[in-house]
Every structure is written in C-alpha cells, then in structure tokens.
C-alpha cells in the first residue's frame, strides 16, 4: 500500500504510522464538558467505506489526514494536518 505524503509524494506504507480516525484533530475546548472529551478520545463512527484517518510520515515529520476507503483500501488523497481545516 502506498500513501501520498503531502511533502514527499507516494510512499510505502512502512514509512508511516497510523493512529486512527482523523477525529483526533478536533480537540475540544479546554472547558468542554466531559462528554465532549469522551467523544473526542474514544467514540468513533468507524465507517465501512470512505474514511479519513491520521498518519505520521516519520521520515519527513509530516502529519497527514488520508482519505481512504476502509473496505476497498483505495486511497484518494491526503492533506497535511497543518494545512487542514
């Protein structure tokens, strides 16, 4: 499997670390209620189909959100976390 690093282009999966759903970028405000934190840290839509997940390309240090299909493994694009939303 290859993933498109926004910096380096398509690279072998072995260079990346995946930490799961891209939900992890949407950190609640400091004073958000506990439910918001539970939602952020633990609960997941976990879609079977198009999904966005978070990967780290260790060789260049870029964190990226990858648009991927969890059923077909098709990779359709990526954005650097720094430039996202």
């Amino acid at each position: 499997m290859y993933l498109p690093c926004p910096c380096c282009g398509w690279r072998d999966m072995r260079e990346f670390t995946c930490i799961g759903a891209a939900d992890y970028c949407d950190r609640p405000e400091a004073d958000a209620p506990p439910e918001a934190w539970d939602n952020y840290l633990h609960l997941r839509d976990n879609p079977a189909g198009p999904a966005r997940d978070l990967w780290y390309h260790a060789p260049c240090g870029t964190w990226l959100e990858v648009a991927r299909d969890t059923v077909t493994h098709a990779v359709t694009g990526s954005t650097a976390v720094e430039e996202a939303g």
Binding site: M1, N46, H73
Partner: peptide, 11 residues
C-alpha cells in the same frame, strides 16, 4: 490502519 477488508498488506 482502520479496515474492514479482511486482508492485509506486505509490510
């Protein structure tokens, strides 16, 4: 990586 494909990759 999150997946429902029931198959993996070479790495």
């Amino acid at each position: 990586y999150p997946s429902y494909a029931a198959r993996g990759n070479l790495p």
